[in-house]
Design a protein around this nucleic acid. Structure first.
Lengths: 138, 138
DNA sequence: CCGTATCCAGTTTGATACTG
DNA sequence: CAGTATCAAACTGGATACGG
């Protein structure tokens, strides 16, 4: 790419990126983005990518002190979307295990790609912000 | 991949997905996710992926009736992050063009991957939700 | 241990009106 | 045309307390 976007008003065609039946359709992209965009889901998926974890252990591993409530809410949403499997052992005290489903595992590749991009371009983004903020102040 | 995640209790090691210097560090992943997680940014990037667009035209193309205010806010954030370039022509009436920067273009690959995953697994997610919701009601 | 219920604070988004 | 300003509504996340 980086080829010809010299044209100005032409909608031309570099690549469609997302092509839906109807342009007004969201193609369900929002469904995924919602789960990627909330504060904790990505971390839960990341931690579960390496294996099965119990609630408390999951909570301990997630960076940034997730509250009990938010961990519950987050894993429930992921479970509802079929990304996480929740297994309850009716013991005393109760024991609940969380693991990624096949669907969940297939998402880890994308998250890794996102993380790589993010880490790789972090300096560029930081520089852009600094420059933008500096320009705003004068 | 899709190889062995048959092990159950072992935190073992499938793959680290995101490995930072310190586990408490976010590695800047949130920086990207913030831009991917808000309601409109992805659509702006998607529309700009195919070429340069003026404000009004961008607004028309984005699905879901984005308000003038939200388009301004979104596009400004993307500009600040160095993903979008904004060019003002001091004409009357004013004319402002938006286009992706190189950084912005490099993100479209990831967004495309996300969109593909999303579209491909939409039925699975819908099924999981239906099943989860049904189970909740009884 | 693994939650749920309540309530509150902060952020994000949207409606509307106005301007160079 | 391309914004800005203002205000209200909605949503999200967090603190706390309690329960099986």
């Amino acid at each position: 790419m980086s080829a010809g976007h010299t044209a100005v008003t032409t909608p031309a065609a570099t690549d469609p990126v997302i092509s839906c039946a109807t342009p007004q359709d969201e193609c369900g992209v929002r469904d995924v983005l919602d789960r990627l965009g909330d504060k904790w889901s990505v971390y839960v998926v990341v931690e579960l990518a390496s294996g099965v974890l119990r609630f408390k252990e999951l909570q301990r591993r997630i960076p940034g002190d997730i509250s009990q409530r938010m961990l519950t809410v987050t894993v429930r949403r992921l479970e509802r979307d079929g990304l996480v499997k929740r297994t309850v052992y009716p013991t005393i005290p109760p024991q609940v295990e969380y693991e990624l489903t096949g669907l969940g595992h297939s998402l880890t590749h994308l998250i890794k790609a996102l993380a790589d991009w993010s880490i790789g371009h972090r300096p560029a983004i930081a520089a852009a912000r600094a420059s933008y903020d500096a320009a705003q102040r004068q």
